[in-house]
Nucleic acid binder design. Structure first.
Lengths: 225, 225
DNA sequence: ACAATAAATTAATATTAAATTAACATCCAG
DNA sequence: CTGGATGTTAATTTAATATTAATTTATTGT
């Protein structure tokens, strides 16, 4: 059986490995590359069904690479999906209309990635609409920029609030006890008063809206969308 | 009864010794390893109940090791908890969804470590993650999310009710006497009145439906489907 | 190094959900 | 019928968290 071929392009080996592993496990025939230039050559050679292309890359970025590919007659109709770090300004990318077939934000959970990939490949036959990022829950954080996104809006948070939110967000739905929160946001030795966590939760709720963080009395707090 | 086996993996001998000592003292059967590769082999051999895995290790890091383990049919369902230095980017790790069951930051106090380990191991028997295969008329609990699932519906329970239900559910069909219930839900010293348990049972029956919890007069209560 | 500003923490009190008790009802074995 | 056991409902108490403001502690810019 000839599996569907995916060309995965990202300059970070970690990402390559992580995504590659998950796609391979799903039965796809995965080729990888860490540069845009190389990717174009590879594409010509192996004729992939789908190219996953990181937007931000040194030298030749995803957009250029995409345009290059669209220029080569032989492979110009290959499906291309952009990968971008959550929080990067994709409106610009979308505005450039570089000719991508989908747009996927990182980090992404394996299951979600796979279902997106399946969806794109399914679209190949019947021309469905282009998907722009269906999110899982509408609050996101960008650790690098230290920003929180709420429905597209960007919000800036002080350190402790950010860390607390990041923790809750690291596993939505999971209840984090006060003990665990203290341990992981404040650290072992530091002793802070009983109401400190409450106050930070308050601040978060103030900025995000009440319904995101739920209290389980006697147990802890959890994030839910 | 043979003790529960823990495989402890960290590249720093000091950490190994410190954590190992404390876990052994608690009665766990501890095996240690300083490399991810070796850990996978050891895991195959001894089939631990839980693997504590340092995220940052030379050669093969915790995440890779975790993925490896998840790949070996024989041990793929072993509980795995990540250990990481505080301040490392846990959201990223969690986001990678490498399949860990918990996330513990170092340094950690012995007592807290032990209680975390107990919690993880307890989860094994109790309710597991997201309700995938719900059976009709069945009740499940998810300790991590502190939720009860009844025919796919999510129900939120207060602490004592949750713990009581969890106890009954831990061995469906078994009759739990009032003494045992008090002992395990309330704890040794606490003295509460005669009707306290009844009232909690009432609340449970109210929310779940009468037929799930059966009274054995003069003996106790049991859960049955 | 200093003031200005923001963040984090504590303090004091209010609020609320949860747990318990109380008061009475019912059930059922003997 | 009767008495111990459990059921039920509402009232009460308690424990946990929420809230707001005041205070302390960091951070920043000059």
């Amino acid at each position: 059986m000839s599996n569907e071929k995916i060309l995965l392009v990202d300059d970070e080996p970690d990402i390559i490995e992580f995504l590659g592993y998950n796609l391979t496990k799903e039965g796809y025939d995965v080729t990888t590359s860490t540069s845009g230039k190389e990717a174009v050559e590879l594409a010509k050679k192996i004729k992939p069904d789908l190219i996953l292309l990181d937007v931000m890359m040194p030298e030749m970025d995803g957009i250029e690479t995409c345009q290059e590919i669209r220029n080569v007659a032989d492979i110009k109709n290959t499906l291309i999906a952009f990968l971008s770090a959550r929080g990067e300004d994709y409106s610009q990318v979308a505005g450039l209309d570089a000719g991508a077939d989908d747009y996927i934000t990182k980090p992404i959970k394996p299951r979600l990635l796979v279902s997106r990939v399946k969806a794109i490949l399914r679209r190949k036959s019947g021309g469905e609409e282009v998907g722009v990022d269906e999110q899982e829950g509408d609050i996101k954080i960008d650790r690098e920029k230290y920003l929180v996104y709420k429905e597209g809006e960007e919000l800036s948070f002080p350190k402790k609030e950010f860390e607390l939110l990041a923790l809750l967000l690291s596993k939505p739905g999971k209840v984090f006890t006060r003990e665990v929160i203290l341990e992981s946001v404040w650290g072992g030795e530091v002793v802070v008063g009983d109401r400190t966590i409450d106050v930070h939760i308050r601040k978060l709720r103030e900025k995000l809206g009440d319904h995101y963080i739920k209290t389980i009395k006697g147990v802890g707090y959890k994030f839910e969308s």
